[in-house]
Amino acid sequence: MTGLDLIFAVVGLITAAAAIKTVTSTNLVHAALFLAVTLAGIAGVFLVLSADFLALVQLVVYVGAVAVLFLFGLMLTRAPIGREALDSDHRGLALGVSGALFVLLSGLIIAAFGDVRVDTVGGPRTADIGLALFRDWVLPFEVLSMLLLAALVGAIVLSRREDGESGEVEDVTRILLADDPDLDGVDDADASADGAAGEVRA
């Protein structure tokens, strides 16, 4: 057992503990923070296996963006601030589902790669990763990016207001900021389903 094995074991244990805490925490924000620790721990595992590039991608995408978006969504909507608990009451179910998934996935991975032996742990150079991505696998790569773009556009379409550009219906806001004394019209604008707020001012 080398020093690297020891570090691998420690990082793995931290990651596993944080993963368990992610599904068993009573506080949703704590769960999201433990998720961030889990994702960072996976970056650490990549690093120990000398996959530097992958480790940094994991860090910038999952810890720096996905975990932050999770927290952002939680805090923007209904996160109790401070010590109040927000419990989904599904901890047992979550633990069961994630435990079953873990057993299934690790079984699959062992069945697929269990007898492949890697003796030298030396990550590929970044240039090789680039070449592989943009020469050999350029089509799947582009298809994936199109998929992501479609998801992005879809999200924008779903979250957009139904009556045209989201930036145009500003009159209501302006009236509420007391630019326009005609406050009676505000209720009308809210009531009318088609939101013809431009007519309120007239």
Partner: peptide
């Protein structure tokens, strides 16, 4: 590092977590 620039950008992107934690935990 071979990935020096990426390393700086990736590591510093984690700092925002601390800011969100501070904002939330202050109650």
């Amino acid at each position: 590092l071979e990935l020096g620039l990426f390393y700086v950008l990736a590591i510093s992107s984690v700092g925002v977590l601390g800011i969100m934690m501070a904002g939330w935990a202050s109650a």
